[in-house]
Simulated assay, not measured.
Amino acid sequence: MTLPKGSIVVLYRGYMDFARLYMLVQRECSFVVRAKDNLSFNCVHANPPDTKVGVYSDQTITLTGERSKKGYPEPLRRVRFYDAVSCLELVLLTNRLDLSALTIAAQ
């Protein structure tokens, strides 16, 4: 699939091939994907949560799993968000470190 530079791709959590996600980054594209529950990572930095708007955590992380770390060697953003309308908690991963956590959750 050919995507224009600057595209933001939103994917479901079944698509957790970190090497393919890193290929998007190398093409200067962004992504937002739902994280799986068994993701192995280290938190490098944590921004303050904003539970009033549903942001329960906003972290910069590095992957620690052998294959995932090899496939995606750069830091990621991990946002845990609770959507009160649908009563659903989402854990999202993205390569966009510059956007607000609420903007990431809105994707």
Score class of each variant (00 low, 15 high):
residue 1 M to E: 05
residue 1 M to P: 03
residue 2 T to G: 08
residue 2 T to P: 07
residue 2 T to M: 05
residue 2 T to L: 08
residue 4 P to M: 10
residue 4 P to I: 11
residue 5 K to I: 15
residue 6 G to N: 13
residue 8 I to E: 15
residue 8 I to V: 14
residue 9 V to L: 15
residue 9 V to G: 08
residue 10 V to F: 14
residue 11 L to C: 04
residue 12 Y to E: 15
residue 13 R to C: 07
residue 14 G to T: 11
residue 14 G to C: 08
residue 15 Y to V: 06
residue 17 D to L: 09
residue 17 D to M: 07
residue 19 A to W: 10
residue 20 R to E: 04
residue 20 R to F: 09
residue 20 R to S: 11
residue 21 L to S: 04
residue 21 L to C: 07
residue 24 L to R: 07
residue 24 L to I: 09
residue 25 V to I: 10
residue 25 V to C: 10
residue 26 Q to I: 04
residue 26 Q to W: 08
residue 26 Q to F: 03
residue 27 R to V: 01
residue 27 R to C: 10
residue 27 R to F: 05
residue 27 R to G: 08
residue 29 C to T: 12
residue 30 S to M: 11
residue 30 S to L: 14
residue 30 S to G: 13
residue 31 F to Q: 05
residue 31 F to R: 03
residue 31 F to S: 07
residue 31 F to I: 08
residue 31 F to Y: 15
residue 32 V to T: 02
residue 32 V to S: 01
residue 34 R to H: 10
residue 34 R to P: 07
residue 35 A to K: 01
residue 35 A to N: 02
residue 36 K to D: 11
residue 36 K to A: 04
residue 36 K to L: 02
residue 37 D to E: 14
residue 39 L to M: 14
residue 39 L to H: 08
residue 39 L to S: 11
residue 42 N to A: 12
residue 43 C to Y: 00
residue 43 C to Q: 13
residue 44 V to C: 09
residue 45 H to L: 08
residue 46 A to P: 09
residue 46 A to E: 11
residue 47 N to V: 02
residue 48 P to F: 09
residue 49 P to D: 05
residue 50 D to L: 12
residue 50 D to T: 14
residue 52 K to Y: 06
residue 53 V to Y: 10
residue 53 V to E: 03
residue 54 G to K: 04
residue 55 V to R: 03
residue 55 V to K: 03
residue 55 V to Y: 02
residue 56 Y to Q: 11
residue 56 Y to L: 09
residue 56 Y to H: 09
residue 58 D to W: 15
residue 58 D to A: 05
residue 58 D to Y: 14
residue 58 D to V: 05
residue 60 T to E: 14
residue 62 T to C: 07
residue 63 L to T: 11
residue 64 T to L: 00
residue 64 T to V: 03
residue 65 G to N: 09
residue 65 G to V: 06
residue 66 E to M: 06
residue 66 E to P: 02
residue 66 E to S: 08
residue 68 S to N: 05
residue 69 K to D: 01
residue 70 K to I: 10
residue 71 G to K: 05
residue 72 Y to N: 01
residue 73 P to T: 02
residue 73 P to C: 06
residue 74 E to Y: 13
residue 74 E to C: 02
residue 74 E to K: 12
residue 76 L to H: 08
residue 76 L to I: 15
residue 77 R to M: 01
residue 78 R to K: 09
residue 78 R to Y: 01
residue 78 R to L: 03
residue 78 R to H: 01
residue 79 V to H: 02
residue 79 V to W: 04
residue 79 V to S: 06
residue 79 V to T: 08
residue 79 V to P: 06
residue 80 R to Q: 12
residue 81 F to D: 04
residue 82 Y to H: 14
residue 84 A to M: 03
residue 86 S to F: 13
residue 88 L to M: 14
residue 88 L to I: 14
residue 88 L to C: 13
residue 90 L to N: 03
residue 91 V to A: 00
residue 91 V to P: 00
residue 92 L to S: 00
residue 93 L to V: 05
residue 93 L to H: 01
residue 93 L to G: 00
residue 94 T to I: 05
residue 95 N to F: 07
residue 95 N to L: 07
residue 96 R to W: 01
residue 96 R to D: 13
residue 97 L to V: 06
residue 97 L to A: 15
residue 99 L to H: 02
residue 100 S to V: 11
residue 102 L to R: 07
residue 103 T to N: 04
residue 104 I to E: 03
residue 105 A to T: 15
residue 105 A to D: 11
residue 106 A to W: 03
residue 107 Q to D: 10
residue 107 Q to G: 10
residue 107 Q to H: 10
residue 107 Q to N: 13
